[in-house]
Amino acid sequence: MILELDSISFAYPDGASLFEHVDLSLEAKEFLLIRGPSGTGKSTLLRLLCRLEEPTEGTLRFDGIPYADMPPAELRRHVAYVQQTPTLMDGTVRDNLRTPFTFKANKALVSPDDPTLQQYLNDYLLSGVSLDMEAKQLSVGQAQRVCLIRSQLLSPRILLMDEPTSALDPDSAAVVLETARRLRNEGMTILMISHSETTPDGVTGFLKIGGKTVERS
Protein backbone atom coordinates (compact mmCIF):
# COMPACT_ATOMS: atom_id res chain seq x y z
CA MET A 1 0.00 0.00 0.00
CA ILE A 2 1.38 3.38 -0.92
CA LEU A 3 -0.99 5.29 1.39
CA GLU A 4 -2.89 4.14 4.45
CA LEU A 5 -5.31 6.06 6.63
CA ASP A 6 -5.81 4.31 9.94
CA SER A 7 -8.81 5.61 11.90
CA ILE A 8 -8.24 9.21 10.86
CA SER A 9 -10.34 11.91 12.51
CA PHE A 10 -10.12 15.61 11.85
CA ALA A 11 -11.77 18.53 13.63
CA TYR A 12 -11.34 22.27 13.22
CA PRO A 13 -9.82 24.25 16.12
CA ASP A 14 -13.37 25.28 17.16
CA GLY A 15 -14.17 21.59 17.66
CA ALA A 16 -16.38 21.07 14.56
CA SER A 17 -15.68 17.56 13.30
CA LEU A 18 -15.06 16.90 9.58
CA PHE A 19 -13.86 13.27 9.54
CA GLU A 20 -14.42 10.54 12.09
CA HIS A 21 -12.35 7.34 12.11
CA VAL A 22 -11.70 7.10 8.38
CA ASP A 23 -9.92 3.92 7.24
CA LEU A 24 -8.57 3.82 3.71
CA SER A 25 -5.83 2.03 1.78
CA LEU A 26 -4.57 3.16 -1.61
CA GLU A 27 -2.51 1.05 -3.99
CA ALA A 28 0.26 2.57 -6.07
CA LYS A 29 -0.52 3.62 -9.65
CA GLU A 30 -4.18 4.38 -8.97
CA PHE A 31 -6.01 7.32 -10.54
CA LEU A 32 -8.79 8.25 -8.14
CA LEU A 33 -11.38 10.99 -8.52
CA ILE A 34 -12.56 12.58 -5.29
CA ARG A 35 -16.19 13.63 -5.26
CA GLY A 36 -18.59 14.99 -2.69
CA PRO A 37 -20.75 17.99 -1.84
CA SER A 38 -19.13 21.33 -0.96
CA GLY A 39 -17.79 21.62 2.59
CA THR A 40 -17.53 17.88 3.21
CA GLY A 41 -13.71 17.90 3.31
CA LYS A 42 -12.39 17.09 -0.17
CA SER A 43 -9.59 19.68 0.00
CA THR A 44 -8.96 18.88 3.68
CA LEU A 45 -8.42 15.22 2.77
CA LEU A 46 -5.70 16.21 0.29
CA ARG A 47 -4.20 18.64 2.82
CA LEU A 48 -4.08 15.82 5.42
CA LEU A 49 -2.28 13.60 2.91
CA CYS A 50 0.51 16.18 2.44
CA ARG A 51 0.52 17.23 6.13
CA LEU A 52 -0.71 20.78 5.64
CA GLU A 53 -3.29 19.67 8.19
CA GLU A 54 -2.73 17.25 11.05
CA PRO A 55 -5.38 14.69 12.03
CA THR A 56 -6.80 15.00 15.53
CA GLU A 57 -6.63 11.19 15.80
CA GLY A 58 -5.28 8.27 13.82
CA THR A 59 -2.20 7.41 11.79
CA LEU A 60 -1.25 8.06 8.17
CA ARG A 61 1.38 5.92 6.46
CA PHE A 62 3.35 6.35 3.26
CA ASP A 63 4.86 3.09 1.99
CA GLY A 64 4.21 1.61 5.43
CA ILE A 65 6.10 4.39 7.24
CA PRO A 66 4.05 6.47 9.70
CA TYR A 67 4.00 10.14 8.69
CA ALA A 68 5.31 11.08 12.13
CA ASP A 69 8.51 9.15 11.37
CA MET A 70 9.25 11.06 8.15
CA PRO A 71 10.62 14.62 7.89
CA PRO A 72 7.73 16.66 6.43
CA ALA A 73 9.85 18.04 3.56
CA GLU A 74 10.90 14.49 2.62
CA LEU A 75 7.27 13.32 2.63
CA ARG A 76 6.19 16.27 0.47
CA ARG A 77 8.86 15.40 -2.08
CA HIS A 78 6.99 12.12 -2.61
CA VAL A 79 3.45 13.39 -2.05
CA ALA A 80 3.03 16.56 -4.15
CA TYR A 81 0.02 18.84 -3.80
CA VAL A 82 -1.22 21.27 -6.43
CA GLN A 83 -3.34 23.95 -4.78
CA GLN A 84 -6.80 24.83 -6.07
CA THR A 85 -5.79 28.46 -6.60
CA PRO A 86 -2.57 28.53 -8.60
CA THR A 87 0.10 30.31 -6.58
CA LEU A 88 3.22 31.68 -8.22
CA MET A 89 5.94 33.76 -6.65
CA ASP A 90 7.54 36.96 -7.94
CA GLY A 91 10.00 36.31 -10.77
CA THR A 92 9.99 34.70 -14.18
CA VAL A 93 8.35 31.47 -15.22
CA ARG A 94 11.84 29.93 -15.17
CA ASP A 95 12.42 31.12 -11.56
CA ASN A 96 9.12 29.58 -10.52
CA LEU A 97 9.89 26.24 -12.14
CA ARG A 98 13.40 26.07 -10.71
CA THR A 99 12.79 27.40 -7.16
CA PRO A 100 11.90 23.97 -5.69
CA PHE A 101 15.37 22.75 -6.66
CA THR A 102 16.93 25.37 -4.37
CA PHE A 103 15.30 23.82 -1.28
CA LYS A 104 17.51 21.59 0.90
CA ALA A 105 15.15 18.60 0.60
CA ASN A 106 15.45 18.68 -3.22
CA LYS A 107 19.17 19.38 -3.47
CA ALA A 108 19.88 15.85 -4.74
CA LEU A 109 17.60 16.40 -7.75
CA VAL A 110 18.98 17.88 -10.96
CA SER A 111 17.46 21.23 -11.89
CA PRO A 112 16.03 20.97 -15.42
CA ASP A 113 17.63 22.97 -18.23
CA ASP A 114 15.80 25.49 -20.40
CA PRO A 115 15.01 23.16 -23.36
CA THR A 116 13.44 20.65 -20.93
CA LEU A 117 11.34 23.36 -19.29
CA GLN A 118 10.23 24.73 -22.67
CA GLN A 119 9.24 21.20 -23.73
CA TYR A 120 7.05 20.88 -20.63
CA LEU A 121 5.41 24.23 -21.47
CA ASN A 122 4.77 23.06 -25.05
CA ASP A 123 3.29 19.77 -23.83
CA TYR A 124 0.78 21.72 -21.72
CA LEU A 125 -0.23 23.91 -24.71
CA LEU A 126 1.82 26.80 -23.31
CA SER A 127 4.12 27.28 -26.30
CA GLY A 128 3.28 31.02 -26.25
CA VAL A 129 4.66 31.33 -22.72
CA SER A 130 8.33 32.22 -22.54
CA LEU A 131 10.56 31.16 -19.66
CA ASP A 132 11.59 34.82 -19.29
CA MET A 133 8.01 36.00 -18.86
CA GLU A 134 6.98 37.41 -15.45
CA ALA A 135 5.00 34.59 -13.85
CA LYS A 136 2.45 36.94 -12.30
CA GLN A 137 1.44 38.11 -15.79
CA LEU A 138 0.08 34.66 -16.67
CA SER A 139 -3.65 34.05 -16.86
CA VAL A 140 -5.20 31.81 -14.18
CA GLY A 141 -5.39 28.91 -16.64
CA GLN A 142 -1.75 29.33 -17.66
CA ALA A 143 -0.65 29.69 -14.02
CA GLN A 144 -2.52 26.50 -13.11
CA ARG A 145 -0.60 24.55 -15.74
CA VAL A 146 2.76 26.07 -14.70
CA CYS A 147 1.99 24.97 -11.12
CA LEU A 148 1.28 21.45 -12.36
CA ILE A 149 4.58 21.38 -14.28
CA ARG A 150 6.42 22.65 -11.19
CA SER A 151 5.09 19.76 -9.09
CA GLN A 152 5.64 17.22 -11.86
CA LEU A 153 9.31 18.24 -12.23
CA LEU A 154 10.02 16.90 -8.72
CA SER A 155 8.93 13.41 -9.88
CA PRO A 156 6.67 12.73 -6.89
CA ARG A 157 5.19 9.28 -6.39
CA ILE A 158 1.77 10.69 -5.54
CA LEU A 159 0.19 13.77 -7.12
CA LEU A 160 -2.69 15.42 -5.26
CA MET A 161 -4.66 17.76 -7.53
CA ASP A 162 -7.31 20.09 -6.15
CA GLU A 163 -9.72 20.84 -9.02
CA PRO A 164 -6.90 21.32 -11.53
CA THR A 165 -9.21 21.93 -14.49
CA SER A 166 -11.68 24.35 -12.90
CA ALA A 167 -10.01 27.45 -14.43
CA LEU A 168 -9.15 25.91 -17.79
CA ASP A 169 -10.74 26.04 -21.22
CA PRO A 170 -11.85 22.63 -22.60
CA ASP A 171 -8.66 22.10 -24.68
CA SER A 172 -6.31 22.89 -21.79
CA ALA A 173 -8.43 20.81 -19.39
CA ALA A 174 -8.16 17.87 -21.80
CA VAL A 175 -4.36 18.27 -21.82
CA VAL A 176 -4.24 18.22 -18.00
CA LEU A 177 -6.45 15.12 -17.80
CA GLU A 178 -4.45 13.38 -20.51
CA THR A 179 -1.23 14.23 -18.63
CA ALA A 180 -2.70 12.80 -15.43
CA ARG A 181 -3.57 9.58 -17.27
CA ARG A 182 -0.06 9.39 -18.78
CA LEU A 183 1.62 10.03 -15.42
CA ARG A 184 -0.46 7.27 -13.86
CA ASN A 185 0.62 4.92 -16.70
CA GLU A 186 4.23 5.87 -15.92
CA GLY A 187 3.72 4.77 -12.31
CA MET A 188 2.47 7.86 -10.45
CA THR A 189 -0.55 7.67 -8.13
CA ILE A 190 -3.08 10.43 -8.83
CA LEU A 191 -5.80 11.76 -6.52
CA MET A 192 -7.88 14.46 -8.14
CA ILE A 193 -10.83 16.48 -6.85
CA SER A 194 -13.37 16.98 -9.57
CA HIS A 195 -16.85 18.45 -9.79
CA SER A 196 -17.27 17.33 -13.38
CA GLU A 197 -19.91 14.70 -14.11
CA THR A 198 -17.76 13.14 -16.84
CA THR A 199 -15.12 10.63 -15.93
CA PRO A 200 -11.74 11.13 -17.60
CA ASP A 201 -9.97 8.24 -19.30
CA GLY A 202 -7.71 6.19 -17.10
CA VAL A 203 -9.62 6.73 -13.83
CA THR A 204 -9.40 3.57 -11.70
CA GLY A 205 -11.84 4.48 -8.94
CA PHE A 206 -13.65 7.10 -6.88
CA LEU A 207 -13.46 8.39 -3.35
CA LYS A 208 -16.85 9.63 -2.20
CA ILE A 209 -16.75 12.06 0.68
CA GLY A 210 -19.68 12.89 2.94
CA GLY A 211 -21.13 12.13 6.35
CA LYS A 212 -17.70 12.55 7.96
CA THR A 213 -16.31 9.59 6.12
CA VAL A 214 -14.61 8.58 2.87
CA GLU A 215 -15.84 5.62 0.84
CA ARG A 216 -14.23 3.92 -2.12
CA SER A 217 -16.22 2.91 -5.15
Binding site: Q83, N106, S151
Partner: peptide, 8 residues
Protein backbone atom coordinates in the same frame (compact mmCIF):
# COMPACT_ATOMS: atom_id res chain seq x y z
CA UNK B 1 3.12 26.55 -1.90
CA UNK B 2 6.78 26.56 -0.88
CA UNK B 3 6.17 24.00 1.86
CA UNK B 4 4.43 21.55 -0.45
CA UNK B 5 7.33 21.90 -2.88
CA UNK B 6 9.72 20.68 -0.17
CA UNK B 7 10.74 23.88 1.63
CA UNK B 8 11.46 23.86 5.35
Amino acid sequence: MRLVLGAT
